[in-house]
Amino acid sequence: MNGSVVRTLILKDWQLHRRLILISLAAGGVALGVIQLKSETAFLVGAIWYFVSLFVLGSMLPVSNVINERKKQTAVFLMSLPVSATQYALAKMVSTVGMFLIPWAAMAVAGSTLVLSRHDIPNGIIPLTIILFGFPLVGFCMIAGTALIGESEGWTVAASIACNSSYGLLQYFLIRDPAINRDLNSPVPVWSARVLTVLAGEAAAAGLILAITFYLQSRKREFV
């Protein structure tokens, strides 16, 4: 494996997108500050803002890191380097997913810690919070996969719209699910079978989407 070139390509993507990552982290930080204002409205606005900053990052990263490289024809420059199409796809996947995972993980940990530290919010909400953090992750994998396989801005935007518009609906059904709803006011987190099933489903969906993306990408015969 041509490890050093793949690593250089990943580092290059990080360097080019560090501003976007910092902006999303800053947006999340401000949202956390709003949540701390201790009014119900501020909590609601801050929480929505917090998730929206992840949704926006999840939609922008694939376009910026994958589609723009095609659209602005820098992919030809990269493919003139000693890498194969599969290695390029691997570098693209690792960099795109990695660039999302770091702010996602930081914000998931910060959000959960906030819930744990606030005595006015029951800790029973923690499993739902973690499930909700899974949505932007699965959605991001779907958008990134579409960008990598489809190489089309139109399809990527369509995937982005489909994912972003389904978050609210999924959230609605989750909160109305009695198996999850009944434990929300519990003083301790309850990891019920339903919660664990949903979490496992999210992890499996994210993993499956990435595996299919890599498989299809490695079978491509045309690169540019």
């Binding site: 602005k72 024809q73 820098t74 030809v76 420059f77 003139s80 380097l81 000693p82 890498v83």
Partner: peptide
């Protein structure tokens, strides 16, 4: 490709 230098009209930096 370690020994090939490629540039094309549609290549961008």
């Amino acid at each position: 490709k370690w020994d090939i230098g490629f540039a094309s009209e549609d290549m961008r930096l």
